[in-house]
Simulated scan of single mutants.
Amino acid sequence: MTKPGKQSGRQYTEAEVRAILERALRDAQTREVSHDELVAAAEEIGISRGAIEAASRDIEHVRGEEAARAAILAHRRKGFRSHLFSFLLVNAFLFAVNALTDGPWWFFWPLLGWGLGLAFHALGALSSDVSPRQIHRELERGAAQARKEQGRRLKAQRRAERLERQQRLERSAEDFGHAVEEGVATLLSRIAQEIRGSAPPPPPSPPPGEGVSKRSRIAPLEEDEDESEALGEEEADRAARRGRGGR
């Protein structure tokens, strides 16, 4: 068994490094590698972060050009398929009209003229040649669409934040209103308690039966005085009558 220390002193050329890395990546399990992992792996073999950043930008540019090229070719083929469908449908209708009516055959004239235009369209649509100007225009169009999409996302995010802020303000105002109502109710309750505490106490009510007993004691005395006055007046009348009779 070979010890690991015996391999540490070996040196590899640039071509060998590329071949070894390609072989290792091909034999390893396929998975996506993040940018940080790529930078860390490059630094292990002595490649600077700046070189990795520049190479990654080049790869992104190449990837964008390839995507733009694929989009252009797909758009061309889609247009050709639509053109071919219209060509077949219309010329089939013209053939049916020419076959069902009397007269010479004329449908092949529009078929020939339109077929020539379709052939030129096929040459351009089925070709894989894309000019740099077309790629640049497609990249600009994709960038414009990306900016529009980002603008829509930002607008939606701002709208959601504004709605959330408005709901938070409404909840705060509602809580403040409840707090004010509770404070006013508490203040009024305290004022009422202070007013009740400062009022003079009511006079004590007499015990049951006391007022009745006093009136009952005063009423007989008044009746006795009236009776004695009446008796005195009767005695005086009798004495006056006896004096007049004796004379």
Rank of each mutant, 00 (worst) to 15 (best):
A99F: 04
D129Y: 15
R133W: 06
A122M: 09
G115H: 06
W105M: 14
F120E: 02
S127R: 09
Q134R: 15
S131L: 05
P110L: 00
A119G: 14
L112A: 12
A99Q: 02
L116A: 09
G124R: 14
D129W: 15
L126P: 00
T101R: 11
L126A: 04
A122G: 12
Q134F: 10
S127T: 12
S131A: 06
W106M: 06
G113A: 07
A125P: 05
G124S: 12
T101M: 10
L126K: 00
L126E: 00
N98M: 01
L123K: 07
L111Y: 10
L116I: 11
D102K: 10
A119S: 14
G117C: 12
L100Q: 09
G117P: 01
L118C: 07
G113V: 02
L112S: 10
Q134L: 15
L100M: 12
A119P: 04
F107K: 03
A125D: 11
L118F: 01
H121Q: 11
G113S: 01
W105E: 15
G115A: 06
A119Q: 09
D102E: 13
A119M: 14
F120V: 01
H121F: 07
W106G: 04
H121C: 03
H121K: 13
W105R: 15
L118N: 02
R133Y: 08
G124Y: 13
D102L: 12
D102F: 12
W109R: 13
F108P: 03
L123W: 01
F120D: 01
R133K: 13
S128K: 13
S131H: 05
Q134M: 15
W105K: 14
P132A: 07
A125T: 10
W109I: 15
W105I: 14
P110Y: 00
A99R: 02
A125F: 07
W106L: 10
P132L: 05
A122Q: 04
L118V: 06
A125Y: 07
